[in-house]
Nucleic acid binder design. Structure first.
Lengths: 241, 241
DNA sequence: ATTTTATATTGACTTATGTCAACTCATTAG
DNA sequence: CTAATGAGTTGACATAAGTCAATATAAAAT
């Protein structure tokens, strides 16, 4: 099939097609799809733009779509009773959000909110089901994705239950630097409250620990920008508890 | 294919075959398999017996097999640094353990230990891969299983980070009664240390809360046997934090 | 520039939870 | 039968972390 067919099928969102939501050569669960399958995916998908702060997916609503992030930064929030929140992880450019329970109860188990501007596609869950049954490699990729999230959450759970606050903050900083922003002075765009919600503690506690790290010359902070000066020290703090 | 062929292929473990590790009509990820596929699964699987306390799977070893529990009770443990442990959940008769990261890094991310006597089958991971590519319904079932575990862990994570100890103990008791033992005075077979490791707190703290619940006539306890007297009260405590 | 508003920071204090040590109780070993 | 081991229980105390209130800073609005 001519690649231009795909282009054509996706007039509204131009280069935002899932086919090129990912760089050439980049790993993606869509790589394994044939042109025909890709067209099936693309045909009815919708491209949506969100401003910073807007809610992309809301917890407890029905999981009718899978979201594929073309560019931007978003946070995944588990909303508890009251106004208690836990930010599970961040999702960046080129991520796929299956949304928690698409194969179980078709309900979203978390909220996703844009941190920066976010461009993404909404893909009908039905299409995903169809692809799983048509293309076993795709099923495999989805299983992988699921597994990875499972492992990440497990590590999170162990960290949060077994480490003291400095260890958790160290883990957060390492996560932001090495897994999300991939550069060193990095601008989180996240408030102290949001950062503290990522390691399950109060904003005040988080600030105090950040201050400790600053005065120990482990990091330097300027607004929402953080510079990891002594990564070894962070690794040590993470290990020790 | 004659069902007796399967029987024959599984001489050593008789009625412990995956085909009948599950009651007739019971939901199982193996239900969707054809006789031929079932034979593939059964042909090289091995039936293993464990005594109480024995380790079935060990964290950080390579995930070469999937385990299917024919009968018995086992606990899933995430081992942290030092001797810190977190019991993630229990697995009972008719459970399947995919082991954390079979599709990602082929490493087990948790330990599984027998609480009672456990009879189970070890199925080669390769066979699972083969079935995923052959039978899309099976892939679907695996995705479901994965999703369910993901959601359970998410709820766990939110509970542990956002609830005070009484709420977490209440959740544990409700979980044991309604999801694991499915009867009311139930014998957990678990020590106080193990129970406390399930809700991420010290044994001493756990005992104190259990005492509170006893003196409030919410539960009664006899050794490892617990009787939930006032479930409404537990639900209330769980809600309130 | 000045007011307003939200976020960040700091300090004083409270409390939930962990730590340590003593003691009870049941079970097993000698 | 006693000793010994280990789990369960309790109390006194220490501390990590949360709460509340005050202040500082930055951002936005007038």
């Amino acid at each position: 099939m001519d690649p231009r067919r795909i282009e054509e099928a996706c007039l509204k969102c131009k280069d935002s097609c899932c086919s090129r939501c990912f760089e050439v050569g980049e790993e993606s669960i869509f790589n394994c799809l044939t042109d025909e399958e890709l067209e099936l995916l693309v045909k009815e998908k919708r491209h949506v733009h969100f401003n910073a702060g807007e809610t992309i997916l809301k917890q407890n609503t029905s999981a009718s779509h899978v979201v594929c992030i073309k560019n931007g930064l978003a946070k995944i929030i588990a909303e508890g009773d009251g106004d208690k929140k836990l930010i599970l992880r961040l999702v960046v450019t080129h991520s796929i959000l299956t949304g928690g329970g698409i194969f179980v109860d078709e309900i979203r188990h978390f909220t996703v909110q844009a941190v920066t501007e976010v461009n993404c596609c909404f893909i009908d869950t039905e299409k995903i089901y169809e692809l799983v049954s048509k293309n076993s490699q795709f099923a495999f990729e989805l299983l992988k994705l699921n597994n990875r999230q499972n492992i990440q959450m497990l590590n999170n759970l162990v960290g949060i239950t077994q480490k003291y606050m400095p260890g958790r903050v160290a883990d957060l900083l390492l996560y932001l630097k090495n897994e999300i922003f991939l550069c060193n002075p990095f601008d989180t765009r996240l408030s102290r409250k949001e950062l503290s919600d990522m390691c399950g503690m109060t904003m005040e506690s988080f600030i105090r620990i950040l201050k400790e790290f600053k005065s120990s010359d482990i990091i330097s902070v300027d607004g929402t920008t953080i510079h990891v000066v002594d990564e070894e020290a962070l690794l040590l703090i993470s290990k020790k508890g």
